[in-house]
Each structure stands twice: as C-alpha cells, then as structure tokens.
Amino acid sequence: MAEKIRVLLAKPGLDGHDRGIKVIAAAFRDAGMEVIYTGLRQTPPMIVDAAIQEDVDAIGVSILSGAHMTLFPAILKEMKEKGAGDIILFGGGIVPDEEIKELEALGVAKVFTPGAPTEESIRFLREAVGKKKSDEKIM
C-alpha cells in the first residue's frame, strides 16, 4: 500500500478567512491524506519549521488578502534556506492570472483560485507527490 500523503495547511499573513482552508482540510482528510492544520497568522518561518518537523510532502497555504506576492516568495526563501526546497508548495486565493504565472516561475507548484473543486486539488496533490517520490527513487 502506498504511504499516506502528509500535507501541512496554514494561513500566512494577517487574513483570518479560514473557510476555504478548512474545506480543503476536510476534503484532503476524506481523501485519505494526513492533514496538519496549523491555524491562523503563521509567519513563513513558523510554516517552514512546522513542515520540516512534521516531515510533510507538501505545504498548502490560503491567502485571500492580496499579500500573495509577498508571502509566497517569503515562504519559498525560507524553504531554500532551511534545506526544505523539495517540499511541494501550493496555495489558494484571490490571485490574478498573470501573478499566478509569476509565482509558478518562482517555484510555487500550483495556485488555485475561487471556485476550484476540491477534487482538482486532491488530484493535483496526488500527482505532484507521486512524481516527487518517483524522482527521489530514481536519484
């Protein structure tokens, strides 16, 4: 049997709207994943430290405040500095298309926007983690 996917979910920044991330947490759990939700107002160091400690495959963050162009790069930087660059970083929020492209170029694996079905994020995560694990085996 395949190992369970472990995913850390967090709300960075000052935004407190947690409906979306809790729906995602419940959907991932029901899809058989191990979900660690660390809650609101997590700073990039808090998120990355928790991800390393929990040995997760992926970090998912929800940002609805418009601060995504500050917060995503800050998390990526923290990941690199702490040697956690192999963790998949993805997120959801109100992010315009051209900024999604910029974020993906920086190393964010995927950004979901309002209305995306949970199935889509489950499928994405399974594929991304599957690919990461097979890459690791080859190496």
Binding site: G13, L14, S65, G66, A67, T70, L71
Partner: peptide
C-alpha cells in the same frame, strides 16, 4: 488588515498587506 489587527504600517507583520 494591519489596522484591523492593530499593527502600524511599519510593523514587520504588515509587510505586503
């Protein structure tokens, strides 16, 4: 958000918000 959370605009937590 910084105002709602009681941080001034020059606070580290306000960055980007």
């Amino acid at each position: 958000l910084p105002t709602l959370m009681g941080y001034d605009s020059d606070h580290a937590r306000s960055l980007g918000e």
